[in-house]
Design a protein around this nucleic acid. Sequence first.
DNA 1: GTCTATACAATGATAGAC
DNA 2: GTCTATCATTGTATAGAC
Lengths: 193, 193
Amino acid sequence: MARWEPDARGRLLQAAVELFDDRGYDATTAAQIAERAGLTKTTLFRHFADKREILFQGQDELVALAVGAVESAPRQSTPLEIARGSVRALCSIHIEERRDIRRRLVTILPSSAELMERAVFKRSAVTEALRSALAARIGDSRRAGVLADAAIRAYYDGYASWVASGERGSLADVVDGELDAFSAALGDALHTR
Amino acid sequence: MARWEPDARGRLLQAAVELFDDRGYDATTAAQIAERAGLTKTTLFRHFADKREILFQGQDELVALAVGAVESAPRQSTPLEIARGSVRALCSIHIEERRDIRRRLVTILPSSAELMERAVFKRSAVTEALRSALAARIGDSRRAGVLADAAIRAYYDGYASWVASGERGSLADVVDGELDAFSAALGDALHTR
DNA sequence: GTCTATACAATGATAGAC
DNA sequence: GTCTATCATTGTATAGAC
């Protein structure tokens, strides 16, 4: 027997997304979100470090996935294959249950400078984690940087087009195709014209 | 005859850097900064959009420099040369007058999550502006992305080592050398091993 | 171990006077 | 352009309820 309604976190997330969606992120207060979830502001901030963080995946989780995949890549993998495994691993966080939230985020996110800042920061943190793990693995910091940038770019571009398409097919496949295109671009980048 | 002491903005910046440096960014309030500059909190927020923004270059200025250089690049330039011109242009914002501030920023910036978020956002905004201008110029969005990432990486890495070295030599030369190394890394990125 | 109540400090916005 | 004053909101801190 629970003393409280279960899944406080989930209810807060749902309430937040609905409010952000119809009255805007900035116009929604933390107190309003908590109230709609049947909780108080204090409790909201027990579950989320700040208002922005409600909408994002935990950074530790993302970094652990990206780095874990690099470290467990087969011994004979090429650098590109290692980077590919890392962004493929990142695809697994986008579970079906959050599909509705993903769809709404497309409009909510760019509507707030505060949210964009947080989103960009997460991307940068994952990129740096991947770069650093790759550098340790292949022993070349600059190549690691170039590959991490390209792989994360493929991941984000692939994610955007996957969501825009109504999530047709598997995200991992979309990202895979995107990474093929970016690795071709890497090879061509220095060609004249 | 001025009714007030001149250079309010400069005094605010100086006061902020000194306070951040010796008592920490988070432990310094906007009111304290204003007071040390002989002004009030209201005036501080007339000069700077928020507390973080005190320490950074204006985003419009950075973007205009990066994009302007791309648009004014000679017709026969290679994509790499265009990107090089863009990051060289960015070097010009680091004027001698701000040398003291740059030195202190090395420790202040990473001490605050809030500041790191803003710094990363600016980097991302400049990267995107460069990518987009390059894409328009060379007609290939993915190559533009790869080149923008590499050039901005060269710029930031070069900047960091230039500051760490006590600003020996010209920043543009340091960044130039860094970009040579990164373009070599671009060519090698896909090689096995 | 999760929630509530209350009080609090700081950011940043706003309105009106000089 | 600056000042005083007031304000809403975020986010923290504390202490207690179930």
